[in-house]
């Protein structure tokens, strides 16, 4: 795994096979520009929606909207675009359900002018990536962590991991799937903790 570039490293395994260049352009944009804003998006959703159990669903809906729109035209400024989509979604829901989500409802008005800061999120993500990954690893249940490490670092196949850990292949599957989801949630969904030192 020496000095391969990022994109090579992602490799054929994770790149979607669609040959449609417009689509893969949108995919790249989505991964590069939108996902790093997830922590901020979640914070926004959380403080404007009081039903915790619906947050994942809301996030998904925002992503779909944004992705669909970007397919037609990739927006110039990502952050305001993303937050406008989130805001509109919340307002739609309020109207549809007649459920007013919160003390912060009043704030929805103020959100029209969500700042278009100079996107620090991506930089933070890069800088904190290693530490965050470490956090994710620590957080995984031991067996799950072991499976992830064998897969990621040693590049073992599912069967090889099963033999090494002396468990069923299907259990390895479950471990890896669980690890993937926690990885994504921690990497994108949470704000980095304040740095100590450096």
């Amino acid at each position: 795994m020496g000095d391969k570039s990022e994109s090579e490293r992602a490799g054929p395994n994770t790149r979607l096979s669609s040959a449609d260049t417009a689509t893969s352009g949108t995919d790249d944009w989505f991964i590069r520009e939108v996902l790093p804003l997830e922590a901020a998006l979640m914070q926004f959703l959380r403080s404007n929606w009081n039903n915790e159990s619906e947050l994942t669903d809301l996030r998904q809906d925002v992503y779909v909207k944004v992705y669909e729109a970007a397919r037609k035209q990739i927006p110039e400024f990502v952050k305001p675009f993303l937050f406008a989509a989130a805001r509109n979604l919340l307002i739609d829901r309020v109207r549809r359900n007649r459920i007013i989500p919160i003390e912060a409802m009043a704030d929805l008005d103020a959100l029209g002018a969500v700042s278009s800061d100079s996107e620090p999120d991506r930089i933070v993500l890069a800088r904190d990536a290693l530490r965050k990954l470490q956090i994710v690893l620590d957080r995984l249940p031991p067996r799950c962590r072991e499976a992830v490490i064998l897969s990621k670092i040693e590049g073992l196949t599912r069967r090889e991991i099963a033999v090494r850990m002396n468990i069923a292949e299907d259990t390895v599957r479950q471990h890896l799937m669980h690890g993937m989801r926690i990885l994504a949630n921690t990497l994108y969904g949470e704000r980095a903790e304040p740095r100590s030192g450096s």
């Binding site: 992602a10 979607l16 991964i31 994710v136 690893l137 490490i149 990885l183 994504a184």
Partner: peptide, 15 residues
């Protein structure tokens, strides 16, 4: 899928 696979690729840095 994009979200999960991007995070998973990112974890290549684990090495």
């Amino acid at each position: 899928f994009l979200r999960l696979s991007a995070a998973w690729s990112y974890a290549d840095r684990l090495s």
